[in-house]
Design a protein around this nucleic acid. Structure first.
Length: 403
DNA sequence: ATAGGGTTAG
C-alpha cells in the first residue's frame, strides 16, 4: 500500500515538478562531449556527475553510451550497462538501442547481440542497430542473417536499414543482394537520400556495374563529398580514369572541396592512365591549393605513377624523401618498376626492408631474386633461396631465378 | 519552453 502511494507520488512529481536543473546541465555537457572529437570526456563527465550524487535520467544514458561507443571503451560501457539495468532504464527504447549500438561500435558484437536478444520489444532502430553492429564488426553474412530474421518479424525496414545492408552486400560482393535491395527501394518508393544513394553507387561500382552506378549518381538531386568520391573512385578503379578526372572537374565547379581520400582516387586514376603530368599537378594542387598533408597512400600513388612511366629517378626520390617509412606495397611497386625498366641503381636496402616487413609473401623473394639476377649478385640469390625454403615457401614455376 | 537511438568512402 505504502509502496503504491510512493509510486504515485513519483509519477505526480514527474508531471508537476520540473526536473532539477543540474541534471539538464550535465546532460547537455555529456551530449556535447559525446559528439566532439574527445568523446572520452563524456564518459569522464558522467562519472563525475555520479560522484557528485546527481542521479542520471533517461536522457543521460544515451549520451554517455554514445560517448563510450565513439571512444571504444567497452569497459566503461559495461559499467554504464550495469547502472542502466539497476536504474530500470533498460526498458526505454532509446537507452536500449544506444546500448546495443555502443557494443557494436566497440566491436563487441556478442554483447550487442545479447542486448538485442534480451529486449522485450524491438523496433526498426533495434534491428538496424544490430545490422549496423554486424557490419562494423565485419560480420557481413551475419548482417544478412539478421535481416532475414527481421523480415520474419513484423518490423518493416527503412532507408537506414538498407544503407547497412547495401554495405554488407558490397563487402560480400553480392550483386544479387544489392540489386534486390535496389528493387525494394523502387517498389516501396523509398526516398533516395544522400546516404542511400551513395551506398547504392558504392555497391554497383564495387560489383563492376559502373553504368548502373552512374545512373543512380545522375538521378540524385542532392550529393555530398562522399557521393562524388565514391563515384570518382569507382570510375578510377575500373580503368575509366578520363571519366573520373572529368567528374572531378565537375565537382570543383559545383563548389565542393576535395579531401585526402578523393585525391587518392584521382592519383590512382592518373597512375593507371599513365598521366604523369596530370598526376603531378593534382599532387601539387592537393598540397598547395587545398593544404592537405600527403599521406602514405598519396606517396604510394606517386611512386606507382613514376614507376609505371619508367621515370625511376623521380620514383626513387619519392621513396627516399617521403616523411614516413614506405610500406610493403610501395616498396614492391617501386622494386617491380625497377625490374621492369632495368633500373639497377637501387639500394639493396629496399629489398632487405621489404623482406623484413613482409617475410611470408613468396612474391617478395621472387622479386628480390630477380633483382639480384639483374645485377648479377648470385650469392644473394642463393641466400634468398635458402631464406625462402626456411619459411616453407615454394618456388614459383616459370620464375627466372629457379633455372 | 529547451535534449535522446540506427546509415555512406581509400
Amino acid at each position: 500500500m505504502l509502496f503504491r502511494v510512493h509510486l504515485n507520488l513519483a509519477r505526480l512529481r514527474k508531471s508537476w515538478i520540473p526536473m532539477p536543473p543540474e541534471v539538464f546541465a550535465w546532460n547537455t555537457t555529456i551530449r556535447k562531449h559525446a559528439k566532439s572529437d574527445y568523446p572520452f570526456e563524456a564518459v569522464k563527465a558522467f562519472f563525475t556527475m555520479r560522484r557528485m550524487g546527481i542521479p542520471a535520467d533517461n536522457y543521460t544514458y544515451p549520451f554517455v553510451l554514445k560517448g563510450c561507443g565513439r571512444c571504444c571503451r567497452v569497459g566503461e560501457g559495461r559499467q554504464v550497462h550495469c547502472l542502466v539495468v539497476k536504474s530500470g532504464f533498460l526498458l526505454d527504447h532509446y537507452v536500449g538501442n544506444t546500448l546495443l549500438s555502443m557494443y557494436g561500435d566497440c566491436g563487441a558484437i556478442r554483447f550487442a547481440r545479447m542486448v538485442f536478444d534480451e529486449m522485450p520489444e524491438r523496433d526498426v532502430v533495434s534491428w538496424s542497430s544490430l545490422i549496423a553492429a554486424c557490419v562494423t564488426c565485419n560480420c557481413f553474412s551475419e548482417a544478412i542473417l539478421v535481416f532475414q530474421q527481421m523480415m520474419i518479424s513484423e518490423v518493416k525496414l527503412n532507408s537506414v536499414t538498407i544503407v547497412s545492408l547495401l554495405c554488407a552486400s558490397t563487402h560480400l560482393g553480392s550483386l544479387r543482394m544489392g540489386e534486390s535491395l535496389h528493387l525494394y527501394i523502387i517498389v516501396n518508393d523509398i526516398k533516395l537520400d544522400i546516404a542511400l544513394g551513395t551506398a547504392l553507387i558504392e555497391m554497383y561500382s564495387r560489383c563492376g556495374h559502373l553504368e548502373k552506378a552512374l545512373q543512380v549518381f545522375d538521378s540524385m538531386s542532392e550529393k555530398n563529398l562522399k557521393t562524388w568520391t565514391v563515384m570518382i573512385c569507382g570510375l578510377s578503379n575500373h580503368g575509366r580514369g578520363e571519366d573520373a578526372l572529368s567528374l572531378f572537374i565537375q565537382m570543383e565547379k559545383a563548389g565542393l572541396k576535395p579531401d585526402s581520400i578523393l585525391f587518392t582516387g584521382l592519383l590512382c586514376a592518373c597512375s593507371h592512365l599513365g598521366l604523369v603530368k596530370e598526376g603531378q599537378e593534382y599532387f601539387d594542387r592537393m598540397v598547395n591549393a587545398y593544404n592537405i598533408d600527403p599521406k602514405l597512400e598519396h606517396y604510394g600513388c606517386m611512386v606507382d605513377l613514376f614507376g609505371r612511366a619508367g621515370m625511376m629517378k623521380e620514383a626513387y626520390e619519392i621513396v627516399k624523401s617521403m616523411p614516413m617509412e614506405p610500406n610493403s606495397i610501395i616498396l614492391r611497386s617501386f622494386l617491380s618498376a625497377c625490374k621492369i625498366h632495368g633500373w639497377d641503381h637501387v639500394d639493396d636496402h629496399f629489398k632487405e626492408i621489404l623482406l623484413e616487413i613482409e617475410p611470408t609473401l613468396g612474391a617478395n623473394y621472387v622479386l628480390a631474386a630477380n633483382m639480384s639476377a639483374m645485377s648479377c649478385q648470385w650469392d644473394d640469390m642463393a641466400k634468398l633461396r635458402v631464406a625462402m625454403k626456411g619459411r616453407g615457401l615454394k618456388k614459383v614455376p616459370g620464375c627466372s631465378w629457379v633455372k
